[in-house]
Design a protein around this nucleic acid. Structure first.
Lengths: 343, 343
DNA sequence: TTGAAAGCGTTACCAG
DNA sequence: CTGGTAACGCTTTCAA
């Protein structure tokens, strides 16, 4: 049977077996027009027999491109980033690019990891609070195109995000319409640009509503447990009319804590989230829906444009910015509605 | 100010600027002992000034390794794969490896994409129903270590999965204990090895229970909508006592359809899922919990072992198999319980 | 401690 | 149409 593959076969072995030059092998395997059907077949047979797979690094080096791009995100907990990455991967695949992922969360030195990644790709998408502006700036200046996603802009770098402030204002108006006056925001504006935008929008929206007040409480994180803990503490003190949470997971934690405390939602306490996770629907949680997959896809497409225009040495166009629309999804937890609102 | 980076700087420019040879640059930048502190600083300064980032492909080619491994999965919908990938990325990072992801779902030619990927990595993890045994076999035989995850084993290849059949048997016993006799399984055993295992286990479990019957209905897919559609059709006919679903999303769809049909769960119909998504908790869905993150991490670690032992040309050990334990999570939808069961 | 030079496995140009 | 042969940018002996 087949002998053991002690060492990976190279183009040379294929050439030898097929009785042609390596140049011909390269051409035949990449469907160049410049080969006889006959030679092509012979080469293919040899390649198959040897189980030859071209070395990606050698190819990249010779072609002067990596045929890959990277995406950097803080973590992968919760469906949010997963959806973004899925959209990203699909769009990147359409442009013939592989995707390298990098989670900065548990890293010793995120900046170093991102710099290293920058050397392995044709372009990079960076999400949220992963590395500082300085790192972004250096990478962009070193000639690697960068797209920012859900992150504060950096001069000269494309950036893409979902609407936060405007929708948060709409949410504020909706809550005020329910008669909620004493509102607490559960989230850390310093923790992420998205959260900052949501808080700012909420504040602006409530400022237009007479007699409302807004308090800020920072949970330990953005997960279920952080929400639960924060709510437990919060509900022991003066209880607000409504808790607006930085994301759905925190809001779901609040729901759990409220239930444990014997409070009715929305009767005793209104709660809202952000993201519209699947769980939000089953919890009846009023929230905000974001086009996550589209966000990822758009980033991949922008990056591809930058990469091709850089390669062609075209005059670099000015940095682009775009904000994708989001929408309030009204369900049960924001307050009693006359008519049944179904989503 | 800094001039435009028309072309990416190479080690040669750094060497020239620092007034040393490229060998010294290479050593200095990689913290070799063989450089004076003084030279090292000079080189570093030059590299910084030029914003030099070593080319990943050149480095890989020279080192004879990619310092990257790949993970292939069908899709990324639902939190399942995201969790697996997160665990994988974290473990891979710990071994100094980058991660290349590849979703086969919308691809024209998954096999070709996976073969290409195999040329860009030191090892590969393949999940579920993405490519056939033949492709797996070729890749493994070509000298690229492979680990299979949630997939039927291939001779000579390590494989890792979460328990399906045994836990499904336990689930069957639990349902029978509730008095459910007429059970329908909602899922396509041919669609994935996991689903096949769950169905087989359920069948085996019910076979031990006198007077039970099991029916099989194949939904269009594994998402919410598929479950909803399938349930709508199912509930129009002879209604079963219990519907065991291939995964949580399908089960949640069934819940929606049951509600729309005015049925009480679990009073009129018991429902179970599989995966223990966050949404399952809020829907009160009885389901099965899988150690998803651990699954991914274990795959990355196994792969790393294979890679190092292959590189050292050690005698390849026999293929390993492991099945990680899963557990039934009893909630509301499987039937009435005397005592409140909290999770 | 440093430099020169030989690869690493492809692609692509230039002759024939 | 095919073969020879420079690149590609880095790491790593081998000498000095």
């Amino acid at each position: 049977m087949a002998m053991k593959a002690l060492t990976k076969p190279t183009i040379y072995q294929v050439a030898q077996l097929a009785g042609v030059s390596i140049a011909t092998v390269s051409r035949a395997l990449r469907d160049s027009e410049l080969v006889t059907e006959q030679t092509r077949e012979r080469v293919r047979a040899a390649a198959r027999q040897l189980r030859f797979t071209p070395s990606g690094s050698a190819r990249s080096l010779a072609e002067g491109r990596h045929a890959a791009n990277g995406i950097v995100f803080p973590d992968l907990v919760g469906p949010y980033y997963a959806e973004v990455i899925l959209g990203y991967e699909a769009a990147a695949a359409a442009t013939g690019s592989s995707v390298l992922i990098l989670a900065t969360h548990g890293r010793r030195d995120p900046a170093a990891a991102v710099r290293d990644l920058a050397g392995r790709v044709d372009g990079l998408t960076v999400l949220g609070r992963t590395v500082g502006d300085d790192v972004i700036g250096q990478i962009a200046a070193s000639g690697v195109p960068v797209v920012l996603l859900a992150r504060d802009p950096v001069p000269g770098v494309d950036s893409l995000r979902a609407a936060n402030a405007s929708t948060a204002r709409a949410l504020a108006a909706h809550l005020a319409g329910h008669g909620h006056r004493d509102v607490t925001f559960l989230g850390d504006p310093e923790g992420s640009p998205d959260v900052a935008g949501r808080f700012a929008g909420l504040r602006a929206g409530l400022a237009r509503q007479a007699g409302t007040e807004l308090h800020l409480v920072r949970p330990r994180g953005l997960d279920l447990q952080a929400g639960e803990e924060a709510a437990r503490a919060l509900l022991r003190g003066r209880r607000p009319d409504a808790v607006v949470c930085a994301n759905d997971e925190v809001a779901l934690g609040v729901l759990l804590a409220a239930e444990a405390a014997g409070l009715r939602v929305p009767g005793d306490l209104a709660v809202t989230g952000w993201d519209d996770l699947l769980a939000a629907r089953f919890a009846g949680l009023t929230t905000v829906r974001q086009p996550m997959r589209e966000l990822g896809a758009a980033a991949a497409r922008w990056l591809h444009r930058r990469i091709t225009e850089t390669k062609r040495n075209e005059p670099a166009r000015a940095a682009r910015r775009r904000i994708l629309a989001t929408e309030v999804v009204v369900r049960r937890t924001c307050g009693p509605h006359e008519e049944v609102q179904q989503q």
